[in-house]
Amino acid sequence: MNLALWISAGLLAVVLLVGGATKLIVSKEKLAAHPAGGWTGDASVGFVRVLGAIELLGAVGLVLPAALDIAPVLVPVAAVGTVLLMVGAMITHLRRHESRSAVGNLVYLALAAFVAWGRFGPESFTG
């Protein structure tokens, strides 16, 4: 189970890292032109950038605290934050009738919920 939790956290970290870096680096116009990025046309540049920074912090929080053994309790906290982030993403995509993106967010939400459950519960780093 520990291996499955590490793999899940790693996959989520990669998704958040790529998504966050993209939101920070790519222009809002290019993001809005992407099929899953249409929502950025309705959001301010500042909001998109802040969301990208939050995603980068989530990616770091899912892996580094446990890997470095510095405050590993932050891993399930980051996973809960990712669950909340994915709920917001799903709501946004469903309101825009982008069901494919919402399904992807549901998969990420399930992975994050698994990591949160596993790291708060049976495979906790604290004992």
Rank of each mutant, 00 (worst) to 15 (best):
M1A: 00
N2T: 07
N2S: 06
W6R: 12
W6M: 02
W6G: 00
G10N: 02
L11H: 02
L11K: 05
L11D: 01
L11S: 02
L16F: 13
V18Y: 10
G19P: 07
G20A: 04
A21T: 09
T22K: 13
T22D: 14
K23E: 09
K23G: 02
K23P: 10
I25S: 14
I25Q: 15
I25P: 05
I25D: 06
V26H: 12
V26S: 08
S27M: 10
A32K: 11
H34T: 03
H34P: 14
P35Q: 06
P35Y: 08
P35L: 06
A36N: 13
G38R: 13
W39E: 12
G41T: 01
G41W: 06
D42Q: 08
D42Y: 05
D42K: 10
A43Q: 11
A43K: 09
A43L: 06
S44W: 08
V45S: 15
G46V: 03
R49H: 05
R49L: 04
R49C: 00
L51E: 08
L51G: 12
I54E: 07
E55W: 08
L56D: 04
A59T: 09
A59W: 11
V60F: 08
V60E: 03
V60I: 03
G61W: 10
V63K: 12
L64I: 01
L64V: 01
L64W: 10
A66N: 05
A66E: 04
A67F: 11
A67G: 06
A67L: 09
L68M: 08
L68V: 03
L68K: 12
L68D: 03
L68N: 15
D69H: 13
I70Q: 15
A71Q: 09
P72R: 10
V73D: 05
L74Q: 03
L74H: 06
V75G: 02
V77T: 07
G81H: 09
G81D: 11
V83W: 12
L85W: 13
G88C: 06
G88M: 06
A89T: 07
I91L: 14
I91T: 13
T92L: 07
T92V: 00
T92R: 11
E98V: 00
E98S: 03
S101G: 15
V103Y: 12
V103A: 07
G104D: 07
N105I: 03
N105E: 11
V107R: 11
A110P: 15
A110T: 02
A110N: 05
L111A: 05
L111M: 14
A112F: 13
A112P: 15
A113E: 04
F114N: 06
F114S: 02
F114M: 04
W117I: 00
G118C: 04
G118K: 13
G118F: 08
G118S: 04
R119G: 00
G121M: 01
P122I: 00
P122V: 01
E123Y: 15
